[in-house]
């Protein structure tokens, strides 16, 4: 039986839920509807058709860009995971007093805004940038390394930097709930360090890895500014292509269809992630 306080809570939550539905769901549903329309110059025909989705499936460009978006996302997830593990472990297990300070510091770059961070990378990686000047001063190179900036390398460095905090936070939360006794037990039972990580730490922090990974994945897949401003001539993303379609090309239907293709793939990833988290021991319920 639900008591009165519970009902009050429900009533209080209603406007928020309604606002969320209206502000988040409704535009997406409008986009979904658009994705089945067709455009002819500025006239939008509302006869439902799968033509846009067929076009996406048949276009090497759009297929390639979608694959590249998710490939990049996966790569950055992997890199942030590798960097994030020791950092999260250190903050959760080795820092006592300054924990909140460290976490705040970790988040500081996020307060500075996308563009500020991107231009900071320009300063570091540019032909006249700090890294090239240092390399040349050390005599390691005579010419500036042009490939540092305006290249997939620069894009992925900045993406990793941008979204690392999300991975670290996810992993940090997982490490906070990882009882040291489990690792001691594993050592006690004879497992060497590598096995302790593989057989105990990894599975028991996997919910954090999956949660952090999904966040990073989604954000990298949706980031078009970083590739555009640091990626050079090959900095195009599926998102900027969608932007073009909505903007200059006035092809809202095709743009919507691409957006929904991305959304559907992301939702699949989320579903798989949620399922994976449920299957790990930390949140499983007794029978």
């Amino acid at each position: 039986m639900r008591g009165l306080p519970g009902q009050i809570g429900t009533w209080l939550a209603m406007p928020v839920v309604a606002a969320l539905v209206a502000l988040c769901l409704a535009p997406l549903l409008i986009l979904l509807a658009y994705s089945f329309f067709q455009v002819d110059f500025v006239a939008i025909s509302r006869d439902p058709t799968f033509a846009n989705y067929v076009k996406i499936a048949g276009s090497e460009t759009y297929r390639g860009l979608i694959a590249r978006a998710f490939g990049s996302a996966l790569l950055v997830v992997a890199i942030t995971a590798v960097i994030g593990y020791p950092v999260a472990w250190f903050i959760a297990k080795r820092v006592t007093g300054a924990k909140s300070t460290l976490l705040t510091l970790l988040l500081v770059p996020l307060y500075s805004g996308d563009l500020v961070r991107i231009f900071a990378w320009r300063v570091l990686l540019g032909a006249e940038g700090a890294i090239n000047r240092t390399l040349m001063w050390l005599g390691l190179t005579t010419e500036p390394l042009a490939g540092l900036l305006f290249s997939p390398l620069a894009t992925h460095i900045a993406l990793t930097y941008n979204y690392l905090p999300f991975m670290v936070i996810g992993l940090w939360l997982a490490f906070e709930s990882l009882d040291d006794a489990w690792l001691e037990a594993a050592a006690d039972l004879g497992a060497p360090a590598a096995d302790r990580f593989r057989r105990v730490t990894l599975p028991l922090t996997s919910p954090g890895l999956i949660a952090g990974g999904l966040m990073v994945f989604v954000m990298v897949a949706g980031d078009y500014l970083t590739p555009q401003l640091l990626g050079g001539a090959s900095g195009i993303t599926i998102i900027s292509a969608v932007n073009d379609l909505f903007g200059t090309a006035f092809d809202w239907p095709l743009g919507s269809a691409i957006a929904w293709t991305m959304l559907a793939i992301l939702m699949l990833c989320f579903g798989a992630g949620a399922l994976a988290i449920r299957r790990t021991a930390l949140v499983s319920e007794g029978v």
Binding site: D179, A181, W182, E184, A185, A186, V200, P203, L204, T280, A281, L282
Partner: peptide, 8 residues
């Protein structure tokens, strides 16, 4: 003390 059984 907490048994430290591996939950997974």
């Amino acid at each position: 003390q907490s048994y430290a059984l591996f939950p997974h």
